[in-house]
Design a protein around this nucleic acid. Structure first.
Lengths: 260, 260
DNA sequence: CCGGGCGGTGAATCGGCCC
DNA sequence: CGGGCCGATTCACCGCCCG
């Protein structure tokens, strides 16, 4: 285990989360994460030669770094999720929470994996994107949602003062993204409140660290694991920006992407 | 096959949809339906002695008739759905649509069944209920959504003028319900527009006929099948109200529930 | 006719108790 | 000890009623 980059109540580790979890001795209160979806071309065997930039980029937007782990077929996606979900659950306190993003195509696999990993599935949240930030489907349903699987490690015993989180989050994709699938900070800001202040939030696919920033600002501790060295550097940079009270997506944060 | 109750562009049959479909010679353009969810207590085997009124009713609201078929366990729910979905697909034109309501708990089983029935799953819609019309979950996600599985029979080739339906429908549960799980007319009004005017909409679980009313008002033909005699009478009554341009949920419509 | 106040409601869930 | 039945719980919004 490499030594992490850390700050006041947060740490970011560069590691594969499965290997990292095997050696992690602590206990966390919630797992809040956005794993690689591996969507598109599932069950069609046509994903071997695509990386994320050719897959997702359509316009003249600046290219973002390819991220790894987004090329599994559907069955192995579910199996792999079950593995890290089981490992993460072992390190989550009884009654602790899981909040995991997924898209519609992987949703059934995701809920299967969550349950296979020993979590108790308790509901679904919806991230509704404004129409401008999504794609119309002529003659069908507008594809403007992603989903959030909510589960607990065993019984759900909310504290009397525990808030009730919305089931539908309306928010546009962030501007000035430093990660291709970066989630809106305001959604993570709501999600981290599923645990009380002082609790520890764990993100095994920390990416650019948005979960950590939300946790930091809401006075929750954060442990992030990210496989990609450059992306982990970006997460650390953005968390340090948050510590300074600065905007997180600075020019220099973006530059860390290409230096490692 | 009993002779149906029918009107100008609509018919309601009293039958089990699986048996009825076996003998139906026609072709429809869309299947839009809300099957019994069989939710609650899934995988816990505790559903034997519950009817829907004890299951879902909490307050002093007037009792509505129990509906049948809401007591399958999860595996047989998926299997049974696959059966009627396959039968219905055979009677749907190539490129025709399926829109099927489900709740979060049955969503993975529902999408499995849709695909097992030979449909091509193409997306998810969300029905977001106002907070007042749903249940808070302390320390977790508010349970204020139901879902809509969208699929097509084979390739999706929308007409150039085909509209794009919303992915998220915001609507309160109807007042003066005559069916325990009656869906808002405004949502069905949007959904029937997935097929052009003059096309035929089929609902194998017609219930109180809301899908038919929406289809009638939007100049689509409607074929409904409903197992429960009293509920089918209610559907016919409400459709006749719609033909007269009258409000559909009249006192007499409610009375048909208890007469058969 | 408009605005504010108030009571009703909800495609459950959970703990506890009884048999 | 296990399974099933009973009843308390939850809170923002909807819509009616009244001023």
């Amino acid at each position: 285990m490499n030594s992490p980059v850390s700050g006041n109540g947060w740490e970011v580790h560069i590691a594969d989360c499965l290997l990292w979890l095997e050696r992690f001795p602590g206990v966390v209160d919630a797992v809040i994460t956005d794993p690689p979806y591996s969507s598109g071309g599932a069950m069609r065997g046509d994903r071997t030669n695509q990386n994320v930039n050719t897959k997702y980029r359509t316009s003249g937007a600046p290219a973002l770094p390819d991220f790894t782990g987004d090329n599994r077929d559907q069955r192995s996606f579910a199996h792999w999720c079950a593995l890290w979900l089981a490992s993460a659950r072992i390190r989550t306190r009884t009654g602790g929470h899981l909040l995991m993003f997924t898209d519609w195509r992987q949703l059934p696999s995701a809920t299967d994996a969550v349950q296979a990993g020993g979590w108790v599935w308790r509901g679904l949240g919806v991230w509704q994107k404004p129409k401008g930030a999504s794609r119309p489907t002529k003659g069908g349903l507008w594809n403007d949602t992603e989903f959030l699987v909510w589960a607990t490690n065993g019984p759900h015993k909310p504290a009397p003062e525990a808030p009730c989180l919305d089931g539908v989050f309306v928010s546009a994709s962030p501007r000035n993204k430093v990660h291709l699938t970066e989630k809106p900070l305001e959604i993570l800001d709501a999600l981290v409140q599923i645990v009380p202040e002082g609790a520890t939030v764990f993100d095994p696919f920390a990416g650019s660290g948005t979960t950590g920033i939300a946790a930091y600002r809401r006075h929750r501790s954060f442990i992030g694991v990210e496989l990609d060295t450059a992306m982990a550097a970006t997460a650390a940079h953005r968390l340090r920006n948050a510590e300074r009270g600065a905007p997180v997506n600075t020019e220099t944060a973006a530059m860390t992407l290409w230096q490692a």
